[in-house]
Design a protein around this nucleic acid. Structure first.
Lengths: 142, 142
DNA sequence: GTCTCAACTTAGACTTATTCTAAGTACATG
DNA sequence: CATGTACTTAGAATAAGTCTAAGTTGAGAC
């Protein structure tokens, strides 16, 4: 299984993990692999069921959470907070934003350059009700 | 107790609730009041302890959650999702964004006009590590 | 090759945030 | 002043995520 990562070179999940210093155990490879080939921004639970039903590897809930946190800490994936009470994951770590369809809950990636004119229209396939810019950083104690 | 709301007129919490069609019970007034006079983006639990210790009104956890959901549905307050697993609340319902200090967790409101040039500096009291634009809306089925 | 040790995985207990339930209270209306 | 609806309450229930302690794996030492 192959996928595009930030650098835009085709890599296997295993190569990606190795390059980030994460030991590529079968469980981790299978989870990273699943995240790399989906654009559905799954929750931990969705990862568990998708991977469990598709694959021969035994996989416990704790390992899914452990792996997602390991991959997040290693910069392989990112957390996405779109709704209260659940965390979603995204293997697209390039600088981008998200569009949440309030009817279906579907989450679509928006490339950063689309957002240059933040208040403007996003194109005609999106009806924007509103948006939220969330900054992360540090306050200078003036 | 008074506070500024969107319309920038000074209103009491009670008047605000009435204007939004929410019956101003003592518990609701006290919670709305607390949210209007703080800029700390508290969680439900923080609302409960702040209000419980400051006030003579008995207040149960369930009522805090009920009231926060009622106020959110009535458009009096907004949810803010900044960290996994907890919801914060903001009585500033004007169009604005948030800056999260990754060291302290402090959340500061950013007026919408500050964000016009989204990629640019935010001013020198903020060191921006990154930001996330979260759109809400509807996908057109083309 | 096989021993050993640290790293990884596991099941299930635990925690935390939130919602639900069922009973009690309050207060406007007839 | 009886009544009904809306509100509040304590505590049980749920859901997402973390922790714990025991078992497994596999890379390097020998």
């Amino acid at each position: 299984m192959t996928a595009h990562n930030t650098s835009n070179k085709i890599v296997t999940a295993e190569q990606l993990l190795l390059s980030r210093g994460v030991k590529p155990t079968p469980q981790r490879v299978v989870i990273a692999d699943y995240l790399l080939q989906t654009d559905s921004h799954p929750t931990a639970d969705e990862v568990l069921s998708a991977v469990s039903e598709a694959l021969p590897v035994a996989l416990s809930r704790a390992t899914v959470y452990n792996t997602l946190n390991t991959l997040k800490d290693a910069g392989v994936i990112k957390e996405v907070l779109t709704e209260p009470g659940r965390v979603r994951y995204d293997a697209n770590i390039s600088h981008h934003h998200h569009f949440v369809d309030v009817k279906t809950g579907k989450i679509v990636d928006i490339p950063a350059d689309k957002v240059e004119a933040i208040g403007e229209l996003l194109g005609d396939q999106y009806k924007v009700h509103g948006f939220q810019v969330l900054f992360y950083g540090e306050l200078e104690q003036h």
